[in-house]
Amino acid sequence: MPDTISSIVKTTPVLMTDVAKNFVMHLRGSVTIPVVSGVNFALRAGECAVLGGPSGVGKSSILKMIYGNYSADCGQIMVAYRDTMIDIAKAEPRTVLAIRRETVGYVSQFLRAMPRVPALDVAAEALVGQGEGLAEARLKAGEMLARLNLPETLWQLPPATFSGGEQQRVNIARGFLTDHPVLLLDEPTASLDAANRAVVIDLIREKKKKGVAMLGIFHDEDVREQIADAIIDVAHFAERAKRKGQSQGAMVGRPLELT
């Protein structure tokens, strides 16, 4: 029996088909830097796929394209939204925002928070965005921050002055609190100690049980071994992009006229 859309939405909430990404650096003579090409993979509900390959190979770019934060030059990035699949690469800004609110959550590597907003509210924000009441959201945010061993004395302070590891824990709390069916993880364990790394591993396992589809970047081999259900080799996509770029002579550009 062929898959119906509604079953795809539930089992395979992200489907990338023939996606390619280049950066055109207009300030450097319009040099085209190929990132990835021919990206094909699917994310399955309840599994955590890990993007593999050395630094600079394009792992973050893939995450950002699925989040609608980077544009894609070609291909389709189908993402589940309510009972349908939407191509986020071609979606209107307001559609991308609706998808972020309901479907795709993101734990970024670095925290970008509103000035003046205390850590507790930064952590609660995405939850409030999904319609949770403020008091309840703050309660849950507090529990999550406590679980991640962030001292309670910091909760009422804006995280701008926190250490890297503290900021990252606020970021993790914020990303893991919601019930997005898709979660993108950009090195969430990079600046954490062993105890907090273990908490994140537990959090990922809990998400799997709830049927969340995850795609992550983890440089820590130990973490990767414990949570990866599949490894996607990004070097393969990057090589393809380079070959394609060379055959098209894309490294030749014209200088930018600066006015």
Partner: peptide, 21 residues
């Protein structure tokens, strides 16, 4: 636990308007 549930400090954190595509 005062800051989590008993009183709510003023906040920019409000549920956004529901989105209807």
């Amino acid at each position: 636990k005062a800051h989590t549930s008993d009183h709510l400090p003023k906040s920019s954190l409000v549920p956004p308007r529901p989105m209807d595509l």
